[in-house]
Design a protein around this nucleic acid. Sequence first.
DNA 1: CAAATATGTAACCTAATGGTTACCTATGAG
DNA 2: CTCATAGGTAACCATTAGGTTACATATTTG
Lengths: 115, 115
Amino acid sequence: MRDDLYQLDEAATDAVFQALASRERRRLLDLIRGNPGCIVADLLSAFEMSRIGVLKHLRVLEEADLVVSEKAGRERRLYVNTLPLRAIHRRWSDEFDDFWAGKLLDLKDKIETGS
Amino acid sequence: MRDDLYQLDEAATDAVFQALASRERRRLLDLIRGNPGCIVADLLSAFEMSRIGVLKHLRVLEEADLVVSEKAGRERRLYVNTLPLRAIHRRWSDEFDDFWAGKLLDLKDKIETGS
DNA sequence: CAAATATGTAACCTAATGGTTACCTATGAG
DNA sequence: CTCATAGGTAACCATTAGGTTACATATTTG
């Protein structure tokens, strides 16, 4: 799919941010990104929690479309899908252009220091 | 504060993504961004929910440091703080450089179409 | 086939979220 | 001063999230 044709609706955006709002899930995402094609069992050793806990986090990532998988025999191969992240990145780059460009004052600093 | 000195720890990152994981809060953020210095009462008409509901969402945004406020008499002036968003944007730009640059295949598409 | 492996589902518990109503405090205007 | 306005706190309720244990299924391997 062409990069710029991929768009997130509000519900999908909720799901992506929700999925990213957990350390464990971000770590999971990093692990899969670093080991594309890894299977669920490969991930378990990196976590304290039970296998089912990891599976649940994985499902949240999959429902946010941040991770996709492919069944291979009794195993499941995992991959990061970058499109949702890129869609958000792209949208922010558009919407917050003024901010990224640093054209606006740092209001917080201004307020807190009273300057 | 200099832009690149602002860094989010894991807890702060949790808070930012959590805050963004709600349509209402993203809308709130947009409204404040479009009306810097607006007061709480200004926002109410844009929402169906009660004032307290809005206040609670506002607090989530403030705890994520995405919104800052300044008391002015009995009013409270609201501003968006862009630093957390910029910090995330910057980190992603570093970490996902290969992806942003489109150097990697779209694995999802590959998997789903079986090509 | 039998047993080990990889994964998935169900049911349950606790804590956090998202919302409410009712009440309280501080400030500005007449 | 009186009262309307802007905002905040407390207590509550329903739903969701994050985790668990126990059990079930499918696939390899010996």
